[in-house]
């Protein structure tokens, strides 16, 4: 299996899908430069430059998908999707329901998400909770190159709208453009296992809605995704020294959730910690709690999430985004100890 960066893996899967199926196109702002290798291979009619008109080109993506194409529409950063939310909220996710199941929208929205490089909360949000709140949508958040390639492939093959989120701490080019800017004078806490790794060739689809156990443990189950998954793994190592055996599950999608795996890990350990870089309220962590509650599972529950707007200063940002210290402290509290 060849080794790839997270970003290479996504474009590798997209390129394979475009080569296999001429209905697959990609469009968005700056794609001629961002996806220059795909532009060279497939030309400007399938790698389509868009003006800064998110509301129009995302909704056009919906129409194109309804009329037979399989568009991968890039919203540069997920924060910018706010400008174009109607296309998803009132159009893409309504078509199947309103057409009585007779018409569907095989649309992929690709966007960069997440923080950790000091750009503040208008460019560093996750928003998968907000997006997952729309019935009829899937929201994928890979944490490593193999999953990124496999989930991109599944997203393109899916007959329903899918949002594919690419964390900027894992995607080297985004981190370079937005955080590093070619400088040697700044550093970032990049989880290496997420930023680079082996990817099957040809890429293997990863089923949507299937979580993956990233670490076995007995005392507590920690659920995370994207960069938060890596923060869980880092904290789990520290907890080992505290005598706590933590299980870590990579949810891989904010929606749909893998009920089976969540329930089995939760019931086995009796303690659940959701680590979510998205906002704490009305989102993924609450959804996991509701799921456990609906199943009548009595577990000790806690969450480590973004509690406020992501601040600009790196030192403040580090505290607002889930970090090892906060995860460890929450886990110790759940397990009856203290930090």
């Amino acid at each position: 299996m060849p080794e790839m960066t997270f970003a290479q893996a996504i474009d590798y899967a997209l390129g394979e899908a475009m080569a296999a199926d001429e209905r697959v196109i990609t469009l968005g702002e700056d794609v001629a430069m961002l996806r220059r290798e795909l532009l060279v291979r497939f030309g400007p009619s399938r790698v389509l430059q868009a003006p800064i008109s998110e509301a129009a080109f995302l909704a056009a993506g919906v129409g194109a998908a309804m009329a037979g194409l399989r568009p991968v529409v890039e919203i540069m950063m997920v924060d910018f999707i706010a400008v174009a939310l109607d296309a998803l909220l009132n159009q893409a996710t309504k078509v199947r329901a309103f057409s009585g199941g007779k018409w569907n929208v095989p649309l992929v929205v690709r966007a960069a998400c997440g923080g950790g490089y000091g750009d503040a909360g208008q460019h560093e949000q996750c928003l998968w909770g907000l997006l997952s709140g729309m019935p009829g949508i899937s929201v994928l958040v890979p944490s490593n190159p193999a999953d990124a390639a496999g989930l991109m492939l599944s997203a393109i093959q899916c007959d329903e709208p899918v949002v594919f989120l690419e964390h900027k701490l894992l995607s080297d080019y985004w981190l370079d453009y937005l955080g590093r800017g070619g400088r040697e004078t700044v550093s970032f806490d990049v989880p290496e296992a997420g930023a680079r790794g082996e990817v099957p060739k040809p890429p293997a689809p990863v089923p949507i809605g299937k979580a993956k156990k990233a670490r076995e443990g007995r005392d507590i189950a920690m659920f995370g995704l994207g960069v938060s998954l890596h923060r869980c793994l880092e904290a789990a190592q520290e907890l080992e020294k505290d005598g706590i055996s933590a299980e870590v599950v990579d949810l891989r999608s904010a929606c749909p959730l893998d009920r089976e795996m969540i329930l089995s890990s939760a019931s086995r350990t009796g303690r659940v910690l959701v680590v979510d870089e998205d906002y704490a309220g009305y989102g993924l962590s609450g959804e996991v709690a509701a799921l456990l509650s609906e199943e009548g599972l009595k577990v000790d529950f806690a969450r480590v999430c973004a509690e406020e707007v992501v601040p600009y200063a790196r030192s403040l940002e580090d505290e607002v985004l889930p970090n090892r210290r906060r995860i460890r402290e929450a886990a110790l509290r759940l397990c009856g100890g203290s930090a």
Binding site: D119, A120, H123, Y312, A313
Partner: peptide, 19 residues
């Protein structure tokens, strides 16, 4: 000070150069 993320910056270090 704001751009350097200092609490005495224009927005308390919470906005940064785009905000």
């Amino acid at each position: 000070l704001e751009m350097m993320g200092h609490p005495d910056g224009l927005c308390g270090g919470r906005g940064g150069h785009m905000h």
